[in-house]
Structure formats: C-alpha cells, structure tokens
Amino acid sequence: MGDRQLKIDAKLIQEEAAQKHGILLSEQRAAELAQEVNRLNSATAEAAKAIDLNDDPTVFTATLRQLKR
C-alpha cells in the first residue's frame, strides 16, 4: 500500500511547483524531478519505519561527542 501512496508523479510536481513555489516546469523537467524526488522520498520513508517516538534530531552533535574515543 505504502509505495503507491508515496509516489509523486510528474503532474503533481508540476502543480506543486506552480502553486506552492510559483515556478512553471515543462512536463519533461517535472518528470526528471519526480524520478530523483521519488528515489529520495521512498528511501527516507522506508528508513523512517525504524524511528522511535524519542528520536530527537537535535542531539546529533552530542551523539558525535559521545562517540569520541
């Protein structure tokens, strides 16, 4: 179910660019953007299944310091 819902097609990219950002894209360009955006969004969504309620992005630099030898 997830894959189908997560796919952004070229038409949506075109509409999003126009309506949210005021940018007019050709169909070809929108299709190219959709390809890369789908790759990243899908990989992130898949990885996000491992996220816990308490995963906090602001502790990244503290994590690096804790991992120092």
């Binding site: 952004i8 953007l33 992130t44 996220i51 995963d55 906090d56 992005p57």
Partner: peptide
C-alpha cells in the same frame, strides 16, 4: 522544493541513531 518537511525531518531524526 518537492521534499516534504516530514521526509526532511525524518532524515534528521534518524541521523543520531
């Protein structure tokens, strides 16, 4: 422009873990 804020923040939340 076409990366949703939720995806961006998921990538950030996963980073320390």
């Amino acid at each position: 422009h076409h990366i949703p804020a939720t995806r961006y923040l998921q990538a950030q939340r996963l980073r320390p873990r």
